[in-house]
Amino acid sequence: MTGCDTISTDKDSPKILILTTTACSYPGVDNAGQKHLEYPASTYVVNVLDPVIFPVSFYIDAFKMGYDGIYIASCGTDSPYKGTFEKLSKRIGDTVAEMKKIGIHYSRIKLSAICTVCADHFVHELKTFMEEVKNAPKTPELEAVS
């Protein structure tokens, strides 16, 4: 299945920020391309060594900029960096708490683990996440980021 019939291409498709890691998920997302799997185009990959680098305010600012959802494709417990996945998990918990305070629904952020060859898993998870974001309660007007 190419997926062309199932891909939403409308202008209202949620804008998803995908955070990837050099060691695991960036090659995994590339692998989806190598396999010519399809997913919606309103997806924007930003790669870092480890998403543990981001403070809670970074995620909130991304929502304020206009991203409808944030998908964190981490290395999970396979992270080459000691202790970062535990720290990242806690950070996302803190982010969800902060999101709740300003009215952003928790389903708009997802922490996942994507390996270098997790192409099918990534595409399946991304599509599911996009559906969840589509159906999430509307976010109130947020102040713009300077």
Binding site: T2, T9, H36, E38, A41, T43
Partner: peptide, 27 residues
Amino acid sequence: NIREQVSWVHSHHPDEATEKAYHLIRG
């Protein structure tokens, strides 16, 4: 990256792929 993460995954939607390539380059 506009091949593995654009043209190869949005091959049935050239308009959206073109738009995405533009946005990624701006970024």
